[in-house]
Amino acid sequence: MNIFRMLGDLSHLISIFILLHKMQTSKSCSGVSFKSQVLYLVVYVFRYLDLFTNPFMSYYNTLMKIVFIASSAYTIYLMSTVFKPTHDPAIDTFKIEYLLGGSLVMALLFPPKWTFMEISWAFSIWLESVAILPQLFMVQRTGEAETITTHYIFALGAYRALYIPNWIWRYMFDKKAKLETIAVVAGLAQTLLYSDFFYIYWTKVMKGKKFQLP
């Protein structure tokens, strides 16, 4: 554990809190992509299958995995029941079949090992790297986003971005660490997908302006 990974995980927790807070206080999930949320649940379920099989890592790991799966399921529950009337499927139209298919192909072509668990882990890593696309696509369609929604997207993106210095740190100082090539490549790709958003967030939202596309 190093400072970058700790901040990354913290950022992930904060993103969950912001999203639930936004929905609860505004009694609405407008501007939030249901499709992205479904993809994140698929990501966590497939990645954390090892809760039931692999040797126990740490209380921290187990607790965080349960929090990520549970909060993701809860978000979907809220969006499909209480706040369903505030969701507009007409602007949430990204074709997620391609993301699911592409991630599966990548996982089948380059799994860390040829086992179901390792393929499902790789699938979840690739899928996570693109799971934000329906959300970003929705922001692009409407041309703007509520400030609180942009805080959510930023915190979620910062999680993987912070893992990049974490990997460099581990590579340099943690002799026991194995380099997870798939996670590193997918993490870099994910951060690249976010770069445009990060730029606008930094130049507009951080200066108190509304998130608006040029």
């Binding site: 990974r5 090892d50 692999n54 995995k65 990520f68 893992y163 974490n166 997870e180 996670a183």
Partner: peptide, 10 residues
């Protein structure tokens, strides 16, 4: 103790 197999990040 043996290092557990698997992925130790989230």
């Amino acid at each position: 103790a043996a290092t557990p197999e698997g992925h130790d990040e989230l």
